[in-house]
Simulated scan of single mutants.
Amino acid sequence: MRDSVGRVRTVLLLGGRSEIGLAIVERLVRDGAREVVLAARGGAEPPPGALTELGASVYSVEFDAGDPDAHTGTVAEAVGLVGDLDVVVDAFGVLGDQAAYEADPASAARAAAVNYTGHVSAGLAVAARLREQGHGALVVLSSVAGVRVRRFNYVYGSAKAGLDGFAQGLADSLHGSGARVLVVRPGYVPTRMSAHVDPAPFPATPGQVAEAVASGLRSGATTVWAPRVLRPLFAGMRLMPRALWRRLRR
C-alpha cells in the first residue's frame, strides 16, 4: 500500500533484468518505495547494492513472457510477497534484427508474441488485481517505434504499435476504478538490448526514462515521452508523405 503521504511502497517489475525497468525501479526506491519484486525467467537477482543499499527489500519470482497461462499466477505470487501493488512496470521484450526476422519468419512470430501478446495476458492479469485493490498504476514501456512503423524494424515496431493501442484501451477500461495506466514512449535508449542498433537522433538514457516515469506518476499523466521533444517531432512525422517516410533510414 502507499504510505500516509501517498508515496509508492511496493513495485513489481515484469522483465526483472530490463535496464530501463531497473532504472525506473531504482528511481521509485529513491522516492520511497520499500518492497520490490523482480519477475523474470529463472528469477532475477537485484543489481549489486543498487536497491538494497537504498533500503528496499527485494524479492524474485518466475515470469515467462511466452507462457500466458502463468501470468495471473505470477501477479498473485507477487501480491503474496508484498501485498497490494502500488506500481507495476511492464518492461519485458526483445528487439532482435529485422534482416534475421525476414530470413526466419518463425523467429519473427516468436518475437512478436513476446512483444505483444505476452503483454496482453500480463496486462490483463495486472489490471484485474489493480481493479480489485481500487488503486495502483501499470507503467507500460511502449516505444516511438510503434507511433509510426518504419521499414528498418517493422516487426518490432508493429508489435509496439499493438502494445501501445492495447495499453490505451486498457487505461480506458480502468477509468473510474482507482487504477490507471501510464504509457511510456521512449526513443532510442542505449542498452545491452540495443547494442547492435545504430544510434538514432534524440536518444535517452535509462535514467532519463526513469525520471519521465516518476514525473508522470506524480502528475497523473496518461502518456510520457523520453525525451519530450519526440512528442511534437512524431506529431509531424505522422503527417509525412509515405514516399518520403519510406526513405528514412532511422
Rank of each mutant, 00 (worst) to 15 (best):
D104S: 13
V11A: 02
Q168N: 08
P48F: 03
V144Y: 04
V58D: 11
F202W: 11
G236I: 02
A226K: 04
H196T: 09
P203S: 02
V184Y: 07
L130A: 12
A78H: 04
P47Y: 14
A109M: 10
G80R: 09
L124P: 03
V184W: 06
P232D: 15
M237D: 14
E132I: 09
A109V: 15
T52S: 15
L138D: 05
V11P: 00
G6C: 05
G134V: 12
G96I: 02
A112Q: 04
G220M: 14
Q133G: 10
D86F: 03
R180G: 13
Q98C: 02
F166C: 12
P68K: 02
S177W: 01
G15H: 08
R27M: 10
V5I: 11
L174I: 15
L22R: 14
P203T: 02
A33F: 07
P227D: 00
G15M: 10
P241S: 15
D69E: 09
L248V: 13
G207V: 10
A108W: 01
A214E: 08
A128F: 09
L217N: 15
S194T: 12
A204T: 03
F166V: 08
Y188P: 06
S60T: 12
G146L: 05
D64R: 10
D69N: 06
G73R: 02
G73Q: 02
R218I: 07
G32T: 07
T10M: 07
L130Y: 00
F166D: 10
R110G: 05
V79H: 11
L13H: 05
V29E: 04
R250C: 09
R9Q: 12
P199V: 07
V114E: 00
V149D: 09
A76R: 15
Q168L: 13
V87K: 03
G42R: 08
R150L: 07
L239H: 14
G73V: 01
L95Q: 00
S4A: 14
S143V: 11
G118V: 04
Y59E: 08
D64V: 04
R9H: 11
A33H: 06
Y188A: 09
G178I: 13
G42S: 08
V25W: 04
G157H: 01
R192N: 05
V149S: 10
V8S: 07
V189Q: 04
F92L: 08
A210T: 05
G21Y: 11
A179P: 03
P232C: 12
E45D: 14
P232L: 12
V229G: 04
V29T: 06
R30V: 07
L233M: 15
G178L: 10
V197G: 09
V213K: 10
T52F: 12
S4H: 04
F166H: 07
D97Y: 03
A221D: 15
A50S: 15
T52D: 13
V37K: 00
Q98V: 00
H71C: 08
V183C: 01
V58E: 11
L248N: 09
Y116P: 06
